[in-house]
Each structure stands twice: as structure tokens, then as C-alpha cells.
């Protein structure tokens, strides 16, 4: 196998986020807008990096194993609802509230995983059922009122650039550690590569699946808390109103997969999230209408998938042209 020098790998890893930044800066220049105009812009950027990175991890952990999960948004909503309500009743600060959100979300993930391994119903169906169930639970838990912490300055005060960076860094480090440097991670990778062979070699797929659901849930607990601290409120959603959050994770997941050829895949996902966060910032700075945002996001996803599916042909054509010219 051809080995690439480290510097080249690093440059290729940063290619997409840098290209996105350059394009957006050029558009901003044309519009007479500064992309990073003030502290709010930086805050938006780092919050988006944290949210998208964690959501993409949560989605990809199970999706890589063929387990599609529609319940991510519902887990995030229910864990934030429980943690926010307890924060309100007990008067606890942001970090204990975050810890509760993570614990509750991990438990919800575990329950989801438990239902899947016990019933053996296709994961996509189970996840739809769990999404509805968790949405209903959140609604019942608060009587539909949701949670309002707008007067809790300590919890709203969690929304700082420093905390976003800290949360993202800790999450990336823990995920890299768990999936790349532990037996659990090795088993996970073996199961992703070929479940039948992995099981025949003695890997316990049920335990691994349960672990994946719990980790995925815990990550969504952090996302839920970030959202709660950002607005000071948690709104309720019913009838799959919570599933939209997972769609923000597809493009960074594919970008992460591409970058993962040159660098650790989890770091690649984070760089994919950085690219998405830059696009989110640009949407806000350029005051882009939501319909245009949807079109641009969908186009980017489709174009990237077209490229991935035809990469060999595109590159061959490009190289052939260069060779002919030389």
C-alpha cells in the first residue's frame, strides 16, 4: 500500500475545512460582511462545532454498524428535559446538570439498545418507535410545558466559547480512546468490518451493540444540555418533531469518512463538523432564508455523494488529462 508522508496527510485532512473557509470568506468579501465579526460569531461557530461533532459521532457509531437511529433528537430532548427539571427543582449548577443529562441519555440509549437486541426488530423500526416513545415521555414528564431556565444565569452562562471547546475536545478524546484504543473499540471495528466472522471469533455483538447505544445516547445528552443552556428553554416535540437534528449529521459524517483516509476517522468527523459549522455561521452572517439553507445543504450533500460514488472515474479523467497535457 502506498504510504503518504505525514505533512501531505495533514494537508489533505484540512483540505475540505480550509476550502470551505476560503469560499465562504470570498462570498463574505463580495457581500461586504465579515464572517467572524464579533464574539457572537465565534460563539455560534464553536457551538455548532460542538453540536454537529457530537451528533455526528452519535449517528455514525450505530450507522456504521447498519443501525439507523431516528431517536437521537428525542434522546437529546428527553435527557435535557429531565436534567433541566431537576436543575430547576434542586437548584443545581450547570456541570451537575450536564452530568445528569449525560447519565439519563446514556440510560435512554441503553434502553433503546435493549429493546433492539431483545426484539430483534429491524433497528430503523425500533428507532422510530423509541423516538415516539421518548417524545411522549418528555411531554408527559413536563405536562407538555417543557422546561424554562431563562432566569438561571448560571446555566445560561455555560454557553461560552471555552466550554464549547472543552466539551468538544473531551468528547473527541474520549471517543478516539474508546473506539481506537480499547478492546470494546477493537470489537466494534471487527463487527463493523464483518459481523459474522467477528461473532465466530468470539466477539459478543449484543454487549457491543448495547455499549454503542449507551455511548450514542450519552453524546446526545451533551447536545441536549448545550441546547438547553443556549436558549434557557427546552421545547416539546411530538409526532417525530425531534428527528430533524440527525439530518445535520449526514454531510459531516461523509466528509469525516473521506478525511478519515488521511487521519483518524473521529478527528475527520470533527473536521467535517468544522466545515458544517462554518456553513452555519455563513448562513447566519449572510441572513440566509431557511428555504435557501435547506437547498444549499441538500445540494452539498448530494454533490459530495456524487463525488464519492464517482471518485475513481473523476480522478482518472483528471489524471489522464494531465498526463496527456504533459
Amino acid at each position: 500500500m502506498k504510504k503518504r508522508p505525514l505533512l501531505k496527510k495533514l494537508l489533505l485532512s484540512l483540505l475540505i475545512p480550509c476550502a470551505v473557509l476560503l469560499v465562504l470568506e470570498a462570498i463574505a468579501l463580495g457581500k461586504g460582511v465579515r464572517l467572524f465579526a464579533n464574539a457572537d460569531s465565534w460563539k455560534l461557530f464553536f457551538r455548532a462545532v460542538a453540536n454537529v461533532t457530537l451528533t455526528t459521532f452519535a449517528l455514525s457509531i450505530n450507522l456504521d454498524s447498519g443501525r439507523f437511529d431516528f431517536s437521537l433528537g428525542a434522546v437529546s430532548m428527553l435527557s435535557a428535559t429531565v436534567a433541566g427539571t431537576l436543575a430547576q427543582q434542586w437548584g443545581i449548577g450547570p456541570w451537575p446538570t450536564l452530568a445528569i443529562a449525560v447519565a439519563v441519555a446514556a440510560l435512554l440509549g441503553l434502553i433503546h439498545g435493549g429493546v433492539y437486541v431483545l426484539t430483534r426488530i429491524p433497528p430503523i423500526i425500533v428507532s422510530l418507535g423509541m423516538a415516539l416513545f421518548y417524545e411522549g415521555c418528555a411531554f408527559a414528564f413536563t405536562g407538555g410545558k417543557g422546561v424554562s431556565l431563562v432566569t438561571r444565569t448560571d446555566i445560561i452562562g455555560f454557553s461560552t466559547i471555552g466550554n464549547y471547546i472543552l466539551v468538544t475536545a473531551v468528547a473527541v478524546a474520549l471517543i478516539v480512546l474508546l473506539f481506537d484504543f480499547t478492546r470494546f473499540g477493537a470489537n466494534y471495528r471487527a463487527l463493523v468490518s464483518g459481523q459474522k466472522i467477528a461473532v465466530e471469533t468470539g466477539i459478543h455483538e449484543v454487549g457491543n451493540a448495547l455499549g454503542c447505544y449507551a455511548v450514542s445516547g450519552a453524546l446526545m445528552g451533551v447536545v441536549g444540555f448545550i441546547s438547553l443552556a443556549n436558549t434557557g428553554s427546552q421545547q416539546m416535540a411530538l409526532n417525530f418533531g425531534s428527528i430533524g437534528i440527525m439530518f445535520t449529521a449526514f454531510l459531516p459524517m461523509f466528509i469525516g469518512g473521506w478525511i478519515g483516509r488521511y487521519i483518524n476517522k473521529r478527528v475527520g468527523i470533527m473536521l467535517g463538523a468544522v466545515s458544517m459549522a462554518l456553513i452555519s455561521l455563513a448562513f447566519a452572517r449572510f441572513d440566509t432564508a431557511s428555504s435557501v439553507q435547506s437547498i444549499v445543504s441538500a445540494l452539498l450533500l448530494v454533490l459530495f455523494l456524487i463525488y464519492l460514488n464517482n471518485e475513481f472515474a473523476i480522478l482518472s479523467k483528471f489524471r489522464g488529462k494531465k498526463e496527456a497535457e504533459s
Partner: peptide
């Protein structure tokens, strides 16, 4: 009512 990062960013702005 987009409830995405860009929308929250606009509100903060």
C-alpha cells in the same frame, strides 16, 4: 422556527 445553529446565531446577533 428553524431551531438550527444558524437560526440561533441570527437570534443572538
Amino acid at each position: 422556527y428553524d431551531f438550527n445553529d444558524a437560526w440561533f446565531g441570527k437570534l443572538a446577533q
